[in-house]
Nucleic acid binder design. Structure first.
Length: 358
DNA sequence: TTCCAGGCGT
DNA sequence: ACGCCTGGAA
């Protein structure tokens, strides 16, 4: 991008567009720092429409930092259920404790203090500083990277050090005169609504005359993305154990995938093993309970990271009075079908529960 | 059915 | 550098 006059044109066109086109979102009603913080973390991973639903439910349940700090981790995970990346929910909860203990329950207007909180990195700290407090900190998220990759027709990955530092410099310069709250939001909003990853609306873009990728016909090749990693298929089986009308669930360790969430015992098939054999074996290895009457129920698929999981579920019983000994989990419960909703489950297990209730 | 997004912690 | 997670778009 050109310096001086070019940057001024850029900023004015961007701010005019934002003034006329910004969406009416719940956290834009007050710009309360707690609202901005939670919405930024939620929106990092969630499409806007779903994010608004989760945000509104969250604020109803945890209207302020104190109510969040008073809540159990289970309640917080339940409110986050379905969003994925559950460490983020645990981190928000942990940060609320720190804010209460060290900052009187208030979000500090201090970049370094924000950065030191669990789950807050450079992006979120800059977003809270600029959007909540209107301070001149550049925010660089994927929207901003994509927008500038196209404006400047950058042929290298945006994460490259020199490329990234150049972008930081441009934004810092513009923020010397632009209003931080509106400017940063405008960049991200334009990236989300117009300069979209697929099907960008270049005909409606207020920066079209300044876009080098548009002029060069390379919009769809920008930004340059790193090569995708291969998807790995894995097959798993789980045992839905029913005894005296209740179902056995166990809670995953907090340092593991889906930490703190609940599940039916299960695991990966070994070489040459059938799904039913794996379900019974995993149940025994994880709980020392012996399955009888294994009955195929449903097969569901879900994804995490670069794995595609096919999960075979089996109903089963046990013959003797149960006293499980846990080897893969931190707690267990016997729960009636109607009560399962109170516990947070990973996506695949929630699919199974939905089928059980039909 | 496949592909895709995306900041933080380790 | 890599793992975390999911639902919706293509």
């Amino acid at each position: 991008m050109k310096k001086g006059k070019g940057q001024l044109l850029f900023r004015n066109a961007l701010l005019d567009w934002f003034g006329a086109n910004q969406r009416d979102l719940p956290w834009r009603r007050t710009y309360d720092p707690y609202h901005i913080w939670v919405s930024e973390v939620m929106l990092q991973q969630t499409q806007m429409e779903r994010g608004v639903e989760y945000f509104n439910r969250w604020m109803e349940r945890f209207p302020d930092i104190r109510s969040l700090a008073d809540a159990s981790e289970q309640e917080v995970l339940k409110a986050w259920e379905g969003l994925g990346y559950y460490s983020r929910a645990r981190n928000i909860r942990a940060a609320a404790d720190v804010l209460l203990a060290e900052y009187g329950g208030v979000v500090p207007e201090d970049y370094a203090a924000l950065l030191a909180l669990p789950g807050i990195g450079p992006y979120t700290a800059a977003a809270v500083m600029s959007i909540a407090f209107n301070q001149p900190y550049p925010v660089i998220d994927a929207n901003v990277e994509r927008l500038f990759a196209r404006i400047d027709n950058v042929a290298r990955p945006m994460k490259e050090k020199a490329v990234y530092q150049n972008l930081e410099k441009i934004l810092a310069t513009m923020l010397r005169t632009a209003p931080p709250r509106d400017f940063n939001q405008a960049l991200m909003e334009l990236g989300a609504l117009v300069c979209r990853p697929r099907n960008p609306l270049c005909g409606e873009c207020p920066l079209g005359t300044q876009c080098r990728a548009l002029a060069a016909g390379t919009v769809m090749q920008r930004p340059v993305l790193p090569p995708r990693k291969e998807t790995i298929d894995i097959v798993m089986a789980c045992a839905i154990l029913k005894h005296n009308g209740k179902f056995f669930i166990q809670q995953r360790r907090s340092d593991d995938v889906w930490g703190g969430l609940w599940e039916f015992p299960g695991g990966r098939l070994k070489n040459g093993e059938s799904a039913a054999q794996a379900a019974a074996r995993e149940l025994y290895e994880e709980t020392e309970l012996r399955a009888v009457n294994l009955d195929p129920f449903r097969t569901v698929t879900h994804h995490y990271t670069r794995y595609r999981v096919t999960l075979h579920a089996f109903f089963c019983n046990i013959s003797k009075v149960p006293e499980p000994r846990l080897h893969a989990a931190t707690a267990f419960r016997w729960v009636a079908l109607d009560e399962l909703d109170r516990y947070p489950f990973p996506s695949g297990h929630r699919q199974l529960i939905a089928h059980m209730k039909r």
